[in-house]
Amino acid sequence: MLEYRVEARRIDAHGSVAHCKDAEVRLDTDVNGSRDAFNPAEMLLAALAACMIKGIERAAPMLKFGLRGVEVRLHGVRQDAPPRMSDIDYEIVVDTDEDDRRIELLHTNVRKYGTIFNTVSAAAKLSGRMVRKG
């Protein structure tokens, strides 16, 4: 089993910071919000996007999938009672010359082997598509 460690601390009433390895991420923990940091819901979506891109980076060489770039667009809907992310829609845009069947194969790998993808999909309605950059 793999294990992960992140430490976070409050800076002041307007924000916090998380540390992992040699990296630092500013967090929006201000009750009024902050435009220059990710709030917890946005961090969840960013983690999901990172998982998708990392999954593509892992699968592409095994599938011999030609890839020039990837963009992930996410939209999350928050339910109020109880508070939770109820729906997340995504679009993964791949810059590739591969055919539609190969793009769907790559998408299947992202859905099947992503740690964060599988964790989030067990807790919220997660749906989306992978398309060729047009």
Rank of each mutant, 00 (worst) to 15 (best):
E7T: 07
G69W: 01
F117Q: 09
C20H: 12
G134P: 14
M52A: 04
A60N: 06
A41P: 01
G66K: 15
T119S: 05
N109S: 12
S16P: 09
L2P: 05
N32Q: 12
A23L: 13
A81R: 11
Y113T: 05
G134A: 08
L126W: 07
V93Y: 13
D22P: 00
Y113I: 03
V72Q: 06
D87K: 10
A13N: 13
I56R: 10
E71M: 01
G134F: 02
R111D: 05
R35F: 04
F38C: 09
R58S: 09
R5P: 00
V131T: 11
L48P: 13
H14P: 00
A41F: 10
R102T: 00
Q79N: 12
A123L: 05
R10Q: 10
G128M: 11
K112F: 00
L67Y: 03
V70S: 02
M1S: 14
S86M: 05
N109C: 13
D99E: 12
E24P: 01
L44S: 12
V70F: 13
A124R: 09
G114H: 09
R111Y: 01
S127E: 15
K125H: 11
S127N: 11
I88W: 01
V17G: 03
A37K: 12
P83E: 15
R35L: 04
E98R: 01
A60C: 02
A23H: 10
D12C: 03
R129L: 10
V6Q: 02
M130Q: 04
R26W: 07
L2F: 14
F38E: 04
V131Q: 03
D80F: 06
E42W: 08
P40S: 06
L44G: 05
R26L: 08
A60K: 03
C20S: 11
I103T: 06
A46V: 14
D100C: 04
G134C: 00
D87P: 00
D97S: 13
R68M: 05
I11W: 02
D97R: 10
R73A: 13
D89E: 15
T96V: 14
V131C: 07
V72M: 06
I53V: 15
M130Y: 00
V93R: 15
A18D: 11
Y90A: 04
G66P: 04
I56L: 06
C20T: 15
L27C: 15
K21A: 14
A49N: 01
G33K: 06
E91P: 04
K64R: 15
E42I: 08
K64P: 04
I56N: 08
V31P: 15
C20K: 01
P40F: 12
D97M: 01
V110I: 10
D80T: 11
S127I: 07
S127L: 04
G134E: 14
T115N: 08
